[in-house]
Design a protein around this nucleic acid. Structure first.
Lengths: 218, 218
DNA sequence: TAGATTGTTAATCGATTAACAATC
DNA sequence: TAGATTGTTAATCGATTAACAATC
């Protein structure tokens, strides 16, 4: 049963649909048409229908989409219907910030532990989640069925630690270090690079460009 | 002098070129061809040359690109040749994590203050950067020529705070809250949404999909 | 000069949008 | 039934890749 490969562009949009549908649910909205959703999200209705039809017909002619149903279906597509155990490697501010995001748990991502090299933080807790030492990783990962590791470490350590994590059984890495781990790890390891610095540079580009055109207008 | 509009896809790649060139510089590499860079970055040489030629001819036939020069030029394009004053609104873990990124300063982003509602943290410092109270924003922003505000607040407060920031003169918002602020603020405000939750969901999709295909192989 | 590699045009590929028949 | 809106095909648009003449 080989399903057609879904394009990255579609996958990038799915979580956004999911978020808007969640907001609609919270607002008690029962049904929505692609046209109405298109207005809210500022994308074309055509795109919404095309995107959704990659995965099946979730709507009904003349009616639109049932919000609760569509929300659940997109959740399934994204794999949010199962719990994924996650660890955070690097218990600095960023690691702790992630541990504090309670909303991740609602989407099925359960942070089961933090890890750090600094003995001073050993045993400390961030919202019930204990900080462990790095040498416990090899046992902890298989024992707790850890699938995902968030890497909040400096670039210098990221690669070697990532390789170990994969050895110990981690299937996916949520990478906050400034390297492209996907190019350095085995093909079958799922890597999502965050690259905050690049996000800030894009902002800077837009800021600079906008300013330039302002000047030109004068 | 209206330059042709550069596509978003190109802009998304620029910071990545910049990063690779920076790494090459650190390694003491003087020149690089699009072919060699293409190998390292896993993109086509054609794309590299096309992307760069949106902004001008930075290379030389038969030679390739001078690493230092190209690095500097891309830096200029991204607006990293000027200092941008930045504040962080929301001094929780995430805000503090951002304040601790010293590397941002090397790219021209200077964090001049943090802001929070909680009086308990007033006057505290994160790496020399003082935490102020929110009611000081209206004076602080114009006084310190703040261009960029990183918003590390819960979704519920993000919109109203963002509107105030814009009133006080902020030109760009680096948004970590789970809303699309670009749709809610004036057109001329630059917004870069980070959306960590969506990043995690994309990871989850890839994890789920990969697992499925594993099962099918059996 | 010969070799290498760019800058750029042309070809291909993929993604988005438009249109409309199907149908609830 | 009439009206609304989907699912889907076809048309358009844009982005990526290939090719090669220009030139260092």
């Amino acid at each position: 049963m080989d399903e057609k490969l879904i394009s990255k562009a579609v996958i990038r949009r799915l979580p956004r649909y999911y978020r808007y549908l969640g907001d609609l649910l919270d607002d008690g909205v029962e049904r929505i048409s692609s046209g109405e959703l298109s207005n809210r999200m500022k994308v074309t209705a055509s795109q919404i229908r095309q995107d959704l039809n990659n995965f099946g017909g979730f709507g009904q002619q003349g009616y639109g989409y049932n919000v609760r149903y569509l929300y659940a279906e997109i959740g399934k597509i994204l794999g949010l219907n199962h719990t994924h155990n996650m660890i955070i490697v690097g218990a600095g501010n960023l690691g702790q910030a992630l541990a504090n995001y309670k909303s991740f748990e609602n989407s099925g991502f359960k942070t089961v532990a933090l890890f750090d090299v600094n003995p001073a933080v050993k045993g400390k807790k961030v919202r019930d989640i204990e900080i462990h030492m790095m040498n416990e990783l090899s046992e902890f990962i298989p024992d707790h069925h850890v699938e995902i590791a968030a890497l909040t470490l400096p670039k210098s350590e990221a690669v070697s630690v990532a390789e170990k994590l994969v050895d110990y059984g981690v299937k996916a890495i949520w990478n906050f270090a400034h390297t492209d781990l996907n190019l350095l790890l085995p093909e079958d390891v799922v890597v999502e690079n965050v690259h905050l610095a690049e996000s800030l540079m894009r902002l800077s580009y837009n800021l600079t460009t906008k300013k330039d055109s302002k000047v030109e207008e004068k």
